[in-house]
């Protein structure tokens, strides 16, 4: 097989045009670094919005004159619903007590109120996987139909905006990643194209001696791959440096950075992503090779 010789040609070429190649590697690295940052941002945003609904609950306000048995019925209906994680009954008295607890020393505002104005309620915590807009809406509508429930209250607006922010970030992230990937491919494409034109004469001679397309392409594809891997490794180093800075330096003074998650698989993937983009760029640059 000629692959060993192709590898030799590729390495020679990388070395021979080291400045152009170095520039390409750095450009590719910058692109991959930005791809990684975008990915992490979207990923963390996704995680953060997943955690939010843990605190997400629904308040069901009950009619005033429900018997204990009716409340018990409502509770058991709710608990049967798979979307409900937990339901807590808050009686009128309990509600007042809690309010007093909240007001503390300011409880004089309640002075002169003889009758408890607060309704009895049920606080419902939802299961995480059920907290999508449509599911919550449906659940609220279902619950509203239960007899004895006066009103259902939940952060509809909040939920809506969270979801649109998330969807927006994802779309933007995807767009960024596609644009950056195209950019990286283009850098490899142009570099390989330059190398190819520089060696046009030689390639013509190779063809006349009986070289196959594979033989002609291989060194360039390998070179594209080397550039891609190089860019991947450099961006990996950059990402690791950033990771280190965030976790071990900044997080000491600003603990907010502690909550950022870096999936380590991405580190390992970087050189491979670089390889794939580099090889794609090279293959596009070579196009169809004709012999006559």
């Amino acid at each position: 097989m000629y692959i060993l010789y192709s590898l030799r040609l590729a390495i020679q070429s990388v070395w021979h045009e080291k400045w152009i190649n170095l520039l390409s590697v750095l450009t590719i690295a910058a692109g991959l670094f930005m791809i990684t940052l975008t990915f992490f941002s979207v990923y963390n945003m996704d995680l953060a919005t997943k955690k939010l609904p843990e605190k997400f609950s629904m308040m069901l306000y009950l009619n005033n004159d429900l018997s204990e048995q009716e409340v018990g019925n409502i509770m058991s209906t709710l608990k049967k619903n798979i979307a409900v994680e937990r339901a807590r009954y808050i009686s009128k008295d309990k509600a007042l007590e809690e309010l007093k607890g909240v007001l503390k020393n300011a409880d004089y505002v309640l002075e002169g109120i003889n009758e408890n104005p607060l309704p009895a309620s049920i606080e419902v915590k939802l299961r995480q996987e059920s907290v999508s807009i449509s599911k919550v809406k449906k659940l609220a509508a279902d619950i509203r139909k239960i007899k004895g429930i006066e009103e259902v209250e939940y952060g509809e607006q909040f939920l809506n905006s969270i979801h649109s922010i998330k969807a927006g970030a994802q779309t933007l992230g995807l767009l960024m990643i596609s644009v950056m990937s195209t950019g990286v491919i283009f850098v490899c494409y142009s570099t390989v194209k330059i190398m190819f034109y520089r060696r046009k004469e030689e390639i013509e001679t190779f063809k006349l001696l009986g070289a196959t397309r594979g033989f002609i392409r291989a060194p360039f594809v390998i070179e594209g791959g080397i550039l891609g891997i190089g860019g991947g490794v450099v961006s990996l180093i950059g990402t690791m440096a950033l990771y280190y800075t965030l976790f071990y330096k900044l997080a000491l003074t600003m603990p907010i950075f502690k909550i950022i998650v870096f999936p380590s698989e991405v580190f390992i993937a970087l050189p491979f992503v670089g390889l794939a983009l580099g090889v794609s760029g090279a293959v596009i640059a070579l196009g169809r090779i004709r012999f006559s």
Partner: peptide, 24 residues
Amino acid sequence: KESSIPFLRRNIGVVFQDFRLLDN
């Protein structure tokens, strides 16, 4: 076929008028 051209060329040795030697 275009892809067979290399294999035919391997059976034909050519002394080119303009040599086509690789200077590097």
